[in-house]
Measured scan of single mutants.
Amino acid sequence: MTDQQAEARSYLSEEMIAEFKAAFDMFDADGGGDISVKELGTVMRMLGQTPTKEELDAIIEEVDEDGSGTIDFEEFLVMMVRQ
């Protein structure tokens, strides 16, 4: 866990972390443990947004600390705390 990830967790109660985990699992449609650009786009479109591929890439790049091209749960928490 990076310093950013530990800091993000410090702002959240266990209840909030559990709620974010449920949301993360909804995004992680294939159950792979991370959110891909495609999965992020699908959920955002379900919520009425129309992000471009470039916008989706930028969202993932902003929090993808390990350079995997996807968002894992710890990175997702950082993203949610920043919102």
Rank of each mutant, 00 (worst) to 15 (best):
M1W: 09
M1F: 02
D3F: 13
Q4P: 03
Q5H: 11
A6Y: 07
E7C: 09
E7P: 12
A8T: 13
A8E: 09
A8Y: 06
A8W: 10
R9N: 11
R9H: 07
Y11I: 03
S13L: 01
E14P: 14
E15A: 07
M16W: 02
M16I: 03
M16S: 11
M16G: 05
I17R: 08
E19W: 02
F20V: 08
K21A: 07
K21R: 08
A23V: 11
A23Y: 01
D25P: 01
D25W: 01
D25R: 08
M26N: 14
F27N: 01
F27C: 13
D28H: 06
D28C: 12
D28G: 08
A29Q: 12
A29D: 14
G31P: 02
G31I: 03
G33P: 02
G33F: 00
D34T: 12
D34R: 12
S36F: 06
S36E: 12
V37A: 06
V37H: 10
K38F: 00
K38W: 07
K38Y: 02
K38C: 12
E39G: 04
G41H: 14
T42P: 14
T42N: 10
T42C: 15
V43W: 00
V43G: 00
R45F: 10
R45W: 05
R45I: 01
M46Y: 10
M46R: 09
L47G: 03
G48L: 01
Q49L: 09
T50M: 02
T50H: 12
T50L: 10
P51V: 05
T52I: 07
K53L: 07
E54F: 14
E54M: 06
E55N: 07
E55S: 06
L56Y: 04
L56C: 04
D57Q: 14
D57V: 11
D57L: 07
A58P: 04
I59P: 01
I60L: 08
E61N: 15
E61P: 04
E61D: 15
E62A: 11
E62L: 08
V63L: 05
V63Q: 03
D64C: 11
D64G: 11
E65A: 15
D66T: 09
G67E: 12
G67A: 12
G67D: 06
S68W: 05
T70L: 14
T70W: 04
I71W: 00
D72I: 07
D72P: 10
F73V: 01
F73G: 00
E74Y: 08
E74S: 09
E75D: 05
L77F: 02
L77H: 01
L77T: 10
V78I: 13
M80S: 06
R82D: 13
Q83I: 13
